[in-house]
Design a protein around this nucleic acid. Structure first.
Lengths: 200, 200
DNA sequence: GAAGTAACTGACCATCCAGTTACTTCACTG
DNA sequence: CAGTGAAGTAACTGGATGGTCAGTTACTTC
């Protein structure tokens, strides 16, 4: 095996991603990560410093990947939600990482995520201003709801015992997400307009 | 301290609930639980058998509590979602327990939860049949989305860094959940009727 | 090909931690 | 009040685990 610290580091990172996604921070084993990557445990400490810092590196990479995978489009929110759904379905371990992070690190947002988030909020507010998105709810609430909908069946949600989930069911879920986001965001509230502000 | 195995057991259970909610199964420490309850570690093994079984007991109790706290009403789904939201806000540790469970135990539903769930599905289907709830989505998908919406800001969701969440924001979130569920479930789909089935 | 350096390894260690064992204390009963 | 069984405790065990370090290997430079 050629000696290249870059590939070594990325091998370790990949193995660590799997391990942390499967077991969380507390449950992950440094030895297992090293063994899975086919390197000595010490290299983890050389490259990343500690188990915790290794998790940080893993998590940051995962966040980057998620952010890139589903580009935000304030004018097609159902499409965005669908893309998110697809991504979660294709990469369940990233959603798991995110859930571990929120539980074991009290969900503090990374600067990258924070930045991406406020960009989304601006775009959403603009779309609402132009009447392209229903303005009944403030952007930050609407965005959160939308993301929650897209992640409803992402790994970490309760799954019926043992039942295998077929392609038809997946398609149905995706459809449900897309339809629901459409209903939440399509301009012109159904029935009466929403109450003026959001103070219950 | 009077010697009563029932109170001892429930003290241990309460301490364990806090510990597991805070650290999950892998992160929880049996010694800490015993110390917090003010009893000897061995009593945990006497009463519960093992750390894993202790978690099971904790989780089952939590599920019971959640099920009782928010009675399902298929004819007032926004109200149900609101009640769920309130419960999550009042008892964030129970939601955390639930998330730990789904991550560390791959989210296998307890029999109690499974039973309660199918009762809800039947009620929902009936309400849809009577035209009281929009029938554009099958009950199991609708219910999942609804629960996801109610739990959007439950502990475990991403929280903006350091920002304190005031009462007004909480009220706004609650309102957003209630309004959204209303939109998803109010009979008579906005705009055109939904496509016949849910095969994407 | 000698000198120097970065990548890498195996063995080790202090500590942690779930679970066990041997013992003591208490409440109650006949 | 002696005896008994349940409740409770302190001390211990053995395996796992995060982290360290002296030393080796592969590669580069001169």
């Amino acid at each position: 095996m050629a000696r290249d610290s870059r590939t070594t580091k990325s091998s370790l990172l990949r193995a660590a991603t799997d391990e942390f996604a499967a077991y969380g921070i507390a449950g992950a084993r440094v030895d297992r990560i090293a063994a899975a990557a086919g390197y000595n445990k010490n290299l983890i400490y050389v490259h990343f410093g500690s188990k915790e810092q290794l998790f940080d590196a893993v998590y940051e990479a995962a966040v980057q990947e998620i952010l890139e995978a589903a580009p935000f489009d304030a004018e097609d929110l159902p499409g965005y939600a669908g893309a998110l759904f697809d991504f979660h379905h294709a990469h369940p371990h990233l959603m798991r990482l995110s859930r571990w992070h929120s539980l074991e690190r009290h969900g503090v947002l990374l600067p990258v995520a924070e930045k991406a988030n406020s960009a989304k909020l601006r775009a959403l507010a603009a779309a609402q201003g132009e009447g392209k998105v229903d303005a009944g709810l403030p952007p930050h609430l609407l965005l959160a709801l939308l993301v929650a909908l897209a992640g409803t069946w992402a790994e970490g949600g309760p799954e019926p015992l043992g039942e295998l989930v077929g392609a038809a069911e997946i398609a149905a879920r995706r459809h449900a997400v897309v339809v629901s986001v459409g209903r939440l965001t399509r301009p012109g509230a159904p029935g009466r307009p929403l109450p003026g502000t959001f103070t219950s």
